[in-house]
Amino acid sequence: MSAAAEPARRGERIWVALDSASQSDRALEVAALLAHRERAELAGLFVEDVDLLRLAGLPLASEISPISAMLRPLGFAELERQLRSQAAGLERELARLARGAGLTWSFQVRRGKPLAEAMALPAADVMVIAGRRPAAPLPPAHGRVPRAARGAVIVLQDASPAAARTLALARELTVRLGATLEVVAAATEPAAGTRPAGPPREPPGRLARAAGAVLDAQARRADALLVLSARDPAAATRELLEDLLPALHCPLVLA
């Protein structure tokens, strides 16, 4: 099934889930690309992490700057201001992208656990979860080196019925981003790049562990894009993501 043959699904939303630790630019770009493809609304979700808000309420709360190593107190009000400012900036960027692509858009701010809030979004919608910013990002090696290929699109293949659709989406993203496609499968699955067939023969937990081990190595690449099927049993997906997300520097597409 090719993406071009797939009928447009008007009225759907493409969500992009962001929080204060997000590597947002690539996630927004991918979400805008998907929304344009689907002729869907580009919807932004910014989650104010309750863990941070709790931290800011503690008497010993303080913050170390990564650019000066200076320690400064972190108050609740100060944190709220930072979060609001961050959310406003992301909303502006999302709006700019949407207008550039002629898309309708919306932006929500919620308070909670980022992953939990993202997983609470409607299951039918495609979702892009931004990767984590690296603790100390390296500047570009050569400012003007043209990129021959823009990273890799990594798609996790399992034996689920949605795997084919996920693979098709990954292929289209590969073309649109000028990236390379990498297909990752559990050891018991057919060879990479081939269409899986039949029901899964591995229990979900084992799949998650097997895939996670591979993805863990790829996920540090900021120029990558990870595509997973959201149609997996929710518990398995969530377990996978909880392991994966803290070290994931690239956006994750749940389709």
């Binding site: 630790a21 941070l52 931290l55 990564p66």
Partner: peptide
């Protein structure tokens, strides 16, 4: 204790059951 990313840096927070401890609890 957890190492957390704030919008502008890093911070450390005491944890209890995979969650940051609230002020009352602390």
């Amino acid at each position: 204790i957890a190492l957390l990313r704030t919008p502008a840096g890093f911070s450390f927070a005491p944890m209890r059951e995979r969650e940051v401890m609230g002020p009352e609890e602390f």
